[in-house]
Design a protein around this nucleic acid. Sequence first.
DNA 1: TATTGTTATACTCTATAACTATA
DNA 2: TATAGTTATAGAGTATAACAATA
Lengths: 176, 176
Amino acid sequence: MPPSQLRKTRASAAGAAPSPALGAPGRRPTPAPAVEQVDTGYLETLIGYNARRAALAVIDRFMVRMAAFELKPVDFSVLSLITHNPGITSRQLCNALGILPPNLVGMINALERRKLIVRQPHPRDGRAVGLHLTGTGQKLMRDAERTALEVETDASQSLSATERQTLIRLLKKIYL
Amino acid sequence: MPPSQLRKTRASAAGAAPSPALGAPGRRPTPAPAVEQVDTGYLETLIGYNARRAALAVIDRFMVRMAAFELKPVDFSVLSLITHNPGITSRQLCNALGILPPNLVGMINALERRKLIVRQPHPRDGRAVGLHLTGTGQKLMRDAERTALEVETDASQSLSATERQTLIRLLKKIYL
DNA sequence: TATTGTTATACTCTATAACTATA
DNA sequence: TATAGTTATAGAGTATAACAATA
């Protein structure tokens, strides 16, 4: 998904220029204009638009680099939470990542088939299953988290260290 | 999609705690721990993770408010670009929004059936079609853009005006 | 030959209902 | 009765190939 061509130009002076209102029957003052340079100025004033574009840009880089580990972003998130929360349950993963339980089952099964994680009985709840990394999984995640750090550095290379911290702080204020 | 429960706690001191490495045959020192509070500290250090969570949070608000206009985020983006770029072509929309042409066709058809837009022949390219708002579409978009502004205010209520500007500026540095 | 718009189609992601076993 | 995990399935979003009309 190439989100190219997102420069700002004034083709229609965003917000002004009432334009002739086509569709009104029997009226067509101008012979239909053509757009030379697309003006995305208005959308660029919206936080949601900018946050989504930024997220997609970083995630695209992330996917390219993580392909070497055969991990999609969601797989990495799941394995990372298991790494830092040994014994975490599927339900806890779903709550933390906003995934619905039926959609997590397949991912967990695939990671288990790859011998990256194992299911252990939960110590206090017979319904639940605790998830743990295998040795293989631990090794993979050490490499994967190092690569994730490289992606971060790449993606934020136009930001100073302070700006990067500020960006993360402000993003958290939006979603927390 | 409720991305609830994303508080930080130290269940495993992120990055430390080598943990017993399950899966190694015939070795099981600890009786499988349980996780009380999920530690998302590591993921929260990643720009991609934070940007995606923030984008989803804002877009969720957006979808709730825009339901009154029967507009999804992508519909709003398309209509907004047509608003500020009368005569824009499908190809230009695809390039600006990162949508693939086959996936835009249905949206354009639906918006045309709702009498919000009309197709006009392109003044200089017989293959292309220029897109324009109807009077109905213009009225809808005046209300929709006002609502979008309210969503912005809502979503960024925990940010100062300066912080909001800073956030957008830093996000652009990520994806531009 | 290349591009615009389009159809058909496949694949992925996300969502809902319902079942089982445990609590 | 409520919850954890699971199955089946439906729907939305995203992807590629190929075609007709025009450049």
